Simulated scan of single mutants.
Amino acid sequence: MTKLLSTAIAEARAAIVRVGTSLFARGYVHAGAGNISARIGDDYLITPTDAALGFLDSDQLALVDADGEQIAGNRASKTLALHQRIYAADPAARFVVHTHSTHLVALTLSGVWNPDDVLPPLTPYYVMKVGHVPLIPYHRPGDPRVADVVTARIADRAARGTPIRAVLLDRLGPVVWGPDAATATAVLEELEETARLWMLTDRRPEPLHASALDELRSTFDAAW
């Protein structure tokens, strides 16, 4: 292993632990629910199966090669296949976070806005930072078939010129991704807090007007 690769892996380990600790401290994750991964070249770092994200040990993170073979660490999360397929479907993705965030799971139980957009475009920052988020029908945790559905959604939205940064798994919560830890985490936070806002207001607010959405597209290149 080259020194450059070793450094990248060490930095990714630190980022995963930092994000897990932060999400747990702020109530975005609980118990052993959720998982986090990073892509480093052709390899992947991912939290171990059933790991508590608030109490991660960087040495126990699973290091996995391109073929899914474990190189080091504890047994990889059962959602490894989904993470790998997301990275393959979106070459810009370098960090993936899946949580069971309370308001987003509650949204799937009480009913999303519509299957193509789980939440309406309520705020400008939701439109700019999150964008479209489709609902993924229920599959058991770790079911490899869910990856087919998610990657199909990624491809469909990319073809329509509105690439996505997140999906919402029915009864299991959001999966978000981005080019780095900070970007992916910001998407997760904005998504969960918008779900919280919508539920706190009893789903009464109207979406942003079409003219406001046009302005966000033209001014900030929002993918909506």
Rank of each mutant, 00 (worst) to 15 (best):
G32M: 02
I36G: 04
I36D: 03
S37H: 08
R39Y: 06
I40G: 05
D42N: 11
D42R: 10
Y44S: 07
Y44D: 00
I46E: 03
A51C: 06
L56T: 06
D57P: 03
D59F: 08
Q60T: 07
D65T: 13
G73N: 12
R75G: 08
A76V: 09
A76Q: 07
T79D: 15
L80N: 06
L80M: 13
H83K: 03
R85G: 10
R85D: 14
I86T: 05
Y87T: 06
A88N: 01
D90Y: 07
A93P: 03
R94V: 02
V97T: 12
V97D: 12
V97R: 00
T99N: 12
H100A: 03
T102W: 12
L104D: 14
V105E: 09
L107R: 04
L107N: 04
L109I: 11
L109W: 08
G111Y: 12
G111C: 14
V112F: 05
W113Q: 00
V118E: 04
V118W: 02
T123L: 15
M128V: 15
K129Q: 11
V133I: 10
V133R: 01
P134A: 14
I136M: 03
Y138N: 08
Y138S: 11
Y138T: 14
H139I: 03
R140G: 08
R140A: 15
R140I: 13
P141Q: 05
D143R: 01
V146C: 11
I154N: 06
